[in-house]
Design a protein around this nucleic acid. Sequence first.
DNA 1: GCCCTTTCGTTGTTGCAACAACATACTCGT
DNA 2: ACGAGTATGTTGTTGCAACAACGAAAGGGC
Lengths: 220, 220
Amino acid sequence: MNTFFLTNTPLFHGISENEISELLSCLGAKERKFKKDEIVFRAGSSISEIGLVESGSVNIVVNFYWGNSHIFGHIGKGQIFAENYAAIPGKELLCDVVACEETEVLFLSMRNMLTTCPRGCAFHTRIIQNMLRISAQKNLNLSSRMMHTASKSLRERLLSYLSEQALEHGSSHFTIPFDRQQLADYLAVDRSAMSNELSKMQKDGLITYHKNEFTLNGST
Amino acid sequence: MNTFFLTNTPLFHGISENEISELLSCLGAKERKFKKDEIVFRAGSSISEIGLVESGSVNIVVNFYWGNSHIFGHIGKGQIFAENYAAIPGKELLCDVVACEETEVLFLSMRNMLTTCPRGCAFHTRIIQNMLRISAQKNLNLSSRMMHTASKSLRERLLSYLSEQALEHGSSHFTIPFDRQQLADYLAVDRSAMSNELSKMQKDGLITYHKNEFTLNGST
DNA sequence: GCCCTTTCGTTGTTGCAACAACATACTCGT
DNA sequence: ACGAGTATGTTGTTGCAACAACGAAAGGGC
């Protein structure tokens, strides 16, 4: 088991390599390999272990009643998955988790993570903090996106997003981390329509932009 | 401080009244009253305490760059707020929290919650579990809604939602917890357009419904 | 019984944004 | 410098869903 690799994952962030070795036994760590298209977790089951992708990647797949399915998320190397279900005892998964290539997964017991281990090891505290931080961060990301996609008009979505970016950067001039296609996907709009709207907004004097550099023009 | 009331909140669920009294001092609990429209947390500040509404309610308000603002959420009695920011040290709030009436808030230190207290009290574990469960549940709720509002067509949104409901109820016949207006808001569509689409879907033989009772008709 | 309110379904109109198709950069390897 | 490939901006068309307005049905109070 590659403990060094784990030091760079969000879950084990701030925990040293030998501390991790110790911690892994606390958490009842189990490793397992999956072939492409093999199912890691199945919808309907309830779990108490989270998964951590050591190599390869997995997809979060939602199956609809009428047979069609939709890939809702993609979890890459170092990321964890199913933690939301593992944190709610008895909760049944509403989606499948499927290996989308040759993938190694590390399973960790959420129960053990959340009960102070008998040895009272110090890193335990740290991993709980990390866990909650990851969860909180996901919440904020989802909330933000939800807020931006709430408005029906394309312009309002852009204004909402740009407004938040300005706030986050603490300046009306900033660079966004998306190209046009990615931004369009994020806001759930059509790329060309968005490009069009952006240039209209520039004509209207609301914003100025060049590539990924944006400046918001206040009414002042 | 009304500790009995706290036993019925999600955060203190499963913890007895006298255990709570003990826990509150661990968590550096502080109580404060707010008048209507008074600001509880201000955008830009970074916090380490979560808030719990003891009476009244608060709004989550997002301020846009161009001056307009938008109420993004409403937190009622017994619910907690700002926990996502408190869980990420140094993270700055992107929204204001404003009392929308005469409101009493209980502040609890997230730092203390996440470090095993020197006395090693047992309820500590429980509150951490509750905290993570709340966070996980919010994540699942947001994810679901995000998934349903992702599709652009009204019909697909409905199919996505109904599909999930069927899965959650473990049956193709179920009752939804929304009336039409609420469902429309949840899916971010127009109510009348949705009503129209629902009856079309019934004509097409996809579903059968009466009021809030739905039945999904499989291709079989 | 009555009125009043709320909820739900229906229709027609209209506006916005998706879509397609193309033009114009920009990037990169050779 | 050149062409291939990608990213972005522009234009017109069209379809879908928001919107407004209305009617029917279902409670709820007196």
